[in-house]
Design a binder for these strands. Sequence first.
DNA 1: CGGATCTAAAGCCATAATGACCTCCTGATT
DNA 2: AATCAGGAGGTCATTATGGCTTTAGATCCG
Lengths: 132, 132
Amino acid sequence: MLLTRASEYALLSLDSIRKSDKPIGAEQLANELSIPKSFLAKILQSLAKQGILESRKGAHGGFVLAQDINEITITSVILAAEGKPPAVFDCNSYSHTCPHGTIGTCAISPFLANFQTKIDDFLNGLTLGDIL
Amino acid sequence: MLLTRASEYALLSLDSIRKSDKPIGAEQLANELSIPKSFLAKILQSLAKQGILESRKGAHGGFVLAQDINEITITSVILAAEGKPPAVFDCNSYSHTCPHGTIGTCAISPFLANFQTKIDDFLNGLTLGDIL
DNA sequence: CGGATCTAAAGCCATAATGACCTCCTGATT
DNA sequence: AATCAGGAGGTCATTATGGCTTTAGATCCG
């Protein structure tokens, strides 16, 4: 699977957050979406670190969108949530067992690169505003 | 990752097999590609079961293409190799922990479906002949 | 027959995904 | 300033998945 739960939770969270005028805390969000708080908290932290969300500490704290919904690309959300870009097949992480050490230059490399580009282009062309 | 090693090995194997006029055994292929024989054998079996390869048992046996290279779609190869279609995010396999049991009808479902369609269309439009 | 080769099913191990917990730090509220 | 809500961030347990092995059996060729 290209995406993990982290991306799912991130996108659903952003959908909830954008509908609120007040900051929403991790706990409240976890209850609202019926998902584990601890896991969600880390995802929200990542989104904040990437500048997608703004976090407010202390009482009545929580998270709010740091950017306009139309300026947040899906790519950036997924990157923040997953911690790495979504890859069709990551030859590099398999470099030690690549059939002939021909990383990126084997018979199927052109296909993989082409496929990857299709996906990247699709995701780069979408913002949160487009899909929610 | 969308694809696993199974797909990589399947595609590389098909590339080798198509270049041979004689059947190639799993062992020979494993040596040629420097990949584990036992694992490869299983993948070749799947390809044979799907009618992509034709298997010949006994001495001097092995595998040959069962179809013309331009009639084998990438989709069918991946499906055979992975045992399931390549999914962006498989809500169904996560049904037990889906935020509200709203499988396929949540806020991001339209996006996921759209994304998935993009990928399916791309793969369905390609044959082995196109990429090798 | 007898070895070569595919078929099939079960199971093992390492890693990554998922999630629980705990402590510290920050900032609002009183 | 004291208190408390809530984020930051680390560690650890659990579980799912990927990657691969093993074993036993069925076929086919010579």
